[in-house]
Design a protein around this nucleic acid. Sequence first.
DNA 1: GGACTAGGCTGACCCGGGTCAAGGTCTGAT
DNA 2: ATCAGACCTTGACCCGGGTCAGCCTAGTCC
Lengths: 244, 244
Amino acid sequence: MTATEQDPGTRLPGAHCDACSLHGVCLTQNLSEDTLEGLDALLDQPSPLKRGESLITQGNAFTSLYLVRSGSLKQVVRPLGQELEHVVGFYLPGETVGLEGIGESRCPASVVAMETTFVCALPYARLRELYYNNPSLSESLLHRMSRELRGEKRQLCLLSGRTAEQRLAGFLLGLSERFQQRGCSRYQFRLAMSRGDIGSHLGLALETVSRVLGRFQRQGLIQLATREMTILSLEGLQAIVEES
Amino acid sequence: MTATEQDPGTRLPGAHCDACSLHGVCLTQNLSEDTLEGLDALLDQPSPLKRGESLITQGNAFTSLYLVRSGSLKQVVRPLGQELEHVVGFYLPGETVGLEGIGESRCPASVVAMETTFVCALPYARLRELYYNNPSLSESLLHRMSRELRGEKRQLCLLSGRTAEQRLAGFLLGLSERFQQRGCSRYQFRLAMSRGDIGSHLGLALETVSRVLGRFQRQGLIQLATREMTILSLEGLQAIVEES
DNA sequence: GGACTAGGCTGACCCGGGTCAAGGTCTGAT
DNA sequence: ATCAGACCTTGACCCGGGTCAGCCTAGTCC
């Protein structure tokens, strides 16, 4: 199964999280039976987002966390007093959106769909009630958050003093790993984000992204038709990341 | 009170968190009376770290969280397969160290004292028992972590496509704000980190850090004697950050 | 107090990647 | 099928900041 073929989850109204095809990678894994039932009860499935629609708008009230069921999103920050926007992250199916708003009244970043995207919504007030009585749920949240923190530190290393080639190689390897964790091919996937989004995320101009991807292709490391990515040499990309 | 004058906390063996001078900015704020007592019981105060000593070593078993009582530390990551180290964060008094290890068996980063530093240690296994029965504690952890996540996103924006001057101005403003939150002067503080540490954190060569700080000084934005920093114009620094 | 060392400053050089510009391609709507 | 607009590619130019080298300063240990 490639990323593009993934269907919008298997959960229907009235169905249960543990029947969802993403259960194994989602926030809901490793929860006790009754905690899962509690989650099922508060969980909402809003209508799908179309490409470009916002799931979360920076500055709006923080109300909910979201679980990606299918599709993908980008997180965008517009630092106060600046008009330039930065893409600070991407979300794939099974990932938890909105964690950085916990404990705040306003959302510190926007989250925008990059393609048709289905999510589950968890109203935070009710989620909070639930985890007050189900410590396994708060532990799951802590683990998710800790993982996201590790991802950010990794991203900081990728941005700090690395060449354009190293950033892009690292980015592709990271994506590849995340697709694999979701049961998709590690070698073939569709880039839902534009060159501009990738550049903003990696601190590069979109022209540089385009040029470097072209170079990778000429070197036989990848095969890229617009947004259809095939990785031909994980080792080659890894070698680029590792060169000091 | 300036950062350098800060004494090593007021908590003595047998004393209580709520008597600590940092209680207002620490993980322990907003906890119920009995949760605090539980924390007091499991909390250990190891002997102080000297400059250069490691509190946490990357790859070692994850066992504890730490609360900074006085002094400061840097978090350092050596990505696997690379010999270069990246400074991914700094910790000031009241901050919580080790959150990115939660849910992992090994510590994903090292944490090293930049000066003589006192910490409180929270063995995670016992902390976990405690928060299983005290949801206000898990909520405090969630809030800390969410805050750290917001800090990392902010850092990503600072690194992504910004000039050396913007990065340094943003860095100084961030430090200034953190000192102020700790009851220290917003305008005067001691940089515990070297130019090299700052450079690594901001993705700049240490020579560039030195040059830009010199330029800021000549422009009358700051006054800097080696590591004694005085900010003369917060507005001026802010203007630099905001210019597109 | 003197010497050793880590850390900091400054200048010269140069290259990676930003910017601007022009043309090509893909996709969805009519 | 056609068209418009968003997205992508490629080339030319140039500057910010990395690198290398040399010197200076401050803190530390005898």
